[in-house]
């Protein structure tokens, strides 16, 4: 049975969070399909990445190590992945829906004429019956993703072409080491066989990467706190909720001004504009300047002690109650009901 494959992104010798999350998901899918989990790491000075990657339950890790392969460039990375996929013929290939994965994935999929589903929020194995051909497909990858600005959820399948390729954003899947002592093998690729000199046509003149970043803008779920959250302790609850849901914490200006949150998190007219699929407004009254930065969210939950708070008029769910009481319950019932 051909394998599930994960492309691992590496920066400064560290495997990206999104890749670790995909390895965890890949392992689950491989178990279900009773096949191997394989991974590829492309870059420079990769001696130590095996120790980071194998424990996720990776059976074979391919390494392409060459000075010229870091930082990421489209053509050489594409050549390696395309040629390796032609040899190994994986049935599923996963990449981060990151600046790298969304540059590489479509190029690879075009070269292999295999479908690619962008930005999946859920990946499950399932069967499919095709009426027109009266044909049954077993064990396809259901690639579930929002589209139309988060207003619809589509389940996409690739019945006939392989690999079935999907990208997933950071924070969507959970990461979990399978076994620190997992026995997987490492295969070093002969890079010259996979790339040609013509692949190195781009000259990277300058590069600035920030290590840890607050990315409220890109988060699919934003838990935002206002003045009504009241204290730093209560604000901690918002971080807990954001963490379990895979979201980020935002804030109103009143919360920022009173020191409850950093300025980089301020949402509104004089802050950032967000359009997540879910916005949870905690102790925020919903003044027009705040709404300017969040009212295009696909769904809004308002938690406010005041049943007449202006935010309620644009909310899908209005919870009349105290933040300190409601949030722990949301965490509890999310954990209880999600798999």
């Amino acid at each position: 049975m051909s394998s599930v494959f994960v492309y691992c992104e590496i920066e400064d010798g560290q495997v990206a969070d999104v890749s670790q999350e995909l390895l965890t998901k890949g392992r689950t899918l491989a178990n279900e399909l009773k096949c191997k989990l394989e991974a590829i790491a492309i870059g420079s000075k990769l001696d130590k990445v095996g120790d980071q990657i194998i424990p996720y339950g990776v059976d074979t890790l391919y390494i392409a190590d060459d000075e010229r392969l870091f930082p990421y460039q489209t053509l050489p990375h594409t050549s390696i992945v395309v040629n390796l996929f032609k040899e190994q013929k994986p049935q599923i290939a996963l990449m981060g829906a990151s600046s790298i994965g969304r540059d590489l994935g479509p190029r690879v999929s075009s070269a292999l004429h295999s479908g690619l589903t962008a930005d999946c929020t859920s990946l499950v194995i399932g069967d499919h019956y095709d009426k027109k051909q009266d044909k049954n497909y077993e064990n396809l990858l259901y690639q579930i993703r929002p589209a139309f600005g988060g207003n619809i959820i589509a389940t996409i399948i690739n019945p006939d072409c392989r690999p079935q390729m999907a990208t997933v954003r950071e924070g969507v899947m959970k990461k979990e080491i399978l076994d620190p002592k997992y026995k997987g093998k490492v295969v070093k690729l002969d890079v010259a066989k996979y790339v040609s000199d013509e692949d190195f046509v781009v000259e990277i003149i300058e590069r600035h990467m920030e290590k840890s970043k607050v990315n409220v803008k890109g988060a699919p779920i934003v838990v935002a706190g206002g003045y009504g959250v009241g204290s730093k302790e209560n604000f901690k609850l918002l971080y807990d909720l954001a963490e379990v849901l895979g979201g980020e914490v935002g804030a109103s200006r009143a919360a920022v001004d009173s020191g409850l949150a950093g300025h980089e998190r301020q949402i509104g007219q004089t802050g950032i504009t967000v359009r997540p699929k879910l916005y949870i407004a905690c102790g925020i009254s919903g003044q027009i300047q705040h709404r300017a930065g969040m009212e295009e969210s696909a769904q809004i939950i308002a938690i406010n002690t005041d049943p007449e708070a202006p935010i309620n008029s644009i909310a899908d769910y209005v919870i009349t109650g105290d933040v300190a009481e409601v949030i722990p319950k949301m965490i509890k019932y999310y954990k209880k009901n999600s798999k």
Partner: peptide
């Protein structure tokens, strides 16, 4: 190669909010 198998609408009908308690 990709086929849309199913599509679900996630827009709540109108913005009639659901009012709930704690």
């Amino acid at each position: 190669p990709t086929k849309v198998k199913t599509v679900e609408n996630v827009v709540l009908q109108a913005k009639d909010s659901k009012i709930i308690s704690a």
